[in-house]
Amino acid sequence: MAGAAQRRPLGLRVTIYAFALAWLVAAAFPFIWTAWGSFKVELDFFSIADWTYALTGERTTAEYGRPFTGAGYHGSWVQQEFWRNVINTFIICFCVVLTSLTIGTLGGYALSRSGYRYTFWLLIAALIFRAMPPLTLVAGYMLPFFEWNVWGILPTTIIVLVAINQPFTLWMLHSFFQSIPKELDESAKVDGCTQFQAFRFVIIPVMWPGVITTGLFSFLLAYNDFAVTSMLLSENNRTMVPEIAAYLGTTYTEGNVMFAVAAAVSAIIPLFILVLFFQRQIVSGLTAGAVKG
């Protein structure tokens, strides 16, 4: 590739670098800007007078004596008790990832090892389920959940999120298990193992890379969900994302939009760390589905 790059004319190379830089700014700048602004007061970050106030922190200095302030974070985390929502989010994410990986691994393994026609139909059904907008499903849950009196609590939401994630998890694990040679568990069965023992002692030790990648995506789906969590959780049990959406309803009038900005930045940080450490897995997970078709 180095040879090819050297043969490119200068104009083309400049265009390529300029375009890459432009995209880099488009992708990263909004986050940097918001993180920067979350340490200002509202009149600086949303300045009517002069947009450079957001850089210099004119009003922030006037109010707090220095150009940066943690007032937004104090307001959301301490006054509004945002930490409760953070804890709820992590409880939900942990349970969703654990449950959907457990049942998804069993199902995906079975789909990859059975050659009958119904596996095709099950996978197609999963694809159709994957296409269902979550909100259309939520509309179906509401009435039964009210009737059974299970609306608004965390376990209900966890089960619903697991079910909604299953089609995606199944497809991903199915294609991953297909890349593990069938001979491995076949030979275990010849040696007298049952199918489950073959799975337990032969497949489980080698399946972790694929399972971790799938788990990352289950985590992202649960962490980023807004449709299900905003509809199925009562006000006391809210997770981060619906809570931030709820701030906008109440705090635009109070003039405390900076609570929402600080909370949004707090919610982005775990994702930032996740990408930092698992970039390779995320990329391979995204492409796994595509390459297999």
Binding site: N224, A267, L271, L274, Q279
Partner: peptide
């Protein structure tokens, strides 16, 4: 590049 895709759509 991954950031806009990974970050919660609402946020």
């Amino acid at each position: 590049s991954l950031l806009p895709f990974v970050v919660t759509p609402l946020i």
